[in-house]
């Protein structure tokens, strides 16, 4: 068995393909490509495949990561090119590397998002006023149900202007979804009402802010 991490893009309509459905998409592409997918043992074998920090439905990405275990060793570039041929439109494989070990995604603790917004904006600097806030309370899903939570610690950085913004948010066990981040903006910034929002995940980072690729 060999392990690889692939970086891929989820563009256009396939951003509506849910995390659960992604497993099927990759498994079937591996089958069509006749690449030796690794499967778990047992009565109901499932493909050995893990995705890093699931994206919400409707969020696109140019920095998704999947770890695939194959039954045989493969040449990295050949694997990537062969699989790409059999992926549905909208999924672009960007990079690949062979890895070892377990829980390779655990050290990825933040994600960068590019957020495009159309709608009504305030006169004042939205980013400045938001960054000044000491506490940002918002209803958030937690293990014990929906609770009002201070999400300030989950926002690592936020910058931009004119409806185009970059945000670095925590991900992993303690995480903030970008959709919720936009909700918080809406709640705390007066005279701001977004009508059309597009979110793109750019990359996942480790504790030092470095990405795997």
């Amino acid at each position: 068995m060999s392990k690889y991490i692939l970086k891929f893009e989820k563009a256009d309509s396939v951003k509506y393909v849910s995390h659960l459905d992604l497993i099927r998409v990759f498994d079937r592409a591996m089958r069509r490509a006749q690449l030796p997918m690794g499967y778990s043992q047992g009565f109901n074998p499932h493909p050995l495949m893990t995705f890093a920090h699931p994206l919400g439905v409707g969020v696109s990405s140019i920095g998704e990561l999947v770890e695939i275990t194959t039954a045989e060793h493969l040449q990295e570039k050949e694997f990537l090119n062969r699989l790409q041929e059999f992926m549905p439109v909208g999924f672009k494989l960007i990079d690949i590397k062979e890895i070892e070990g377990k829980n390779n995604f655990a050290r990825l603790t933040s994600a960068d998002y590019k957020i495009n917004i159309e709608g009504k904006f305030p006169e004042s600097d939205l980013v400045k006023s938001f960054n000044k806030l000491k506490e940002i309370l918002i209803d958030k899903k937690t293990k014990s149900g929906i609770k009002e939570t201070d999400i300030r610690p989950f926002i690592l950085s936020f910058e931009g202007n004119m409806g185009v913004y970059m945000a670095r948010l925590k991900t992993g066990a303690e995480n903030l979804k970008p959709e919720l981040f936009v909700k918080a903006l809406e709640k705390y910034i007066p005279d701001f009402s977004p009508e059309w929002v597009q979110i793109l995940r750019v990359q996942l980072n480790d504790g030092e802010g470095n990405s795997l690729f």
């Binding site: 509506y16 849910s18 439905v57």
Partner: peptide, 17 residues
């Protein structure tokens, strides 16, 4: 794009399979 994030199972409505 403005309505699909608001509905259940948006993959029903996108095509491109």
């Amino acid at each position: 794009d403005s309505v699909l994030p608001l509905v259940q199972k948006p993959a029903r409505y996108i095509g491109g399979e």
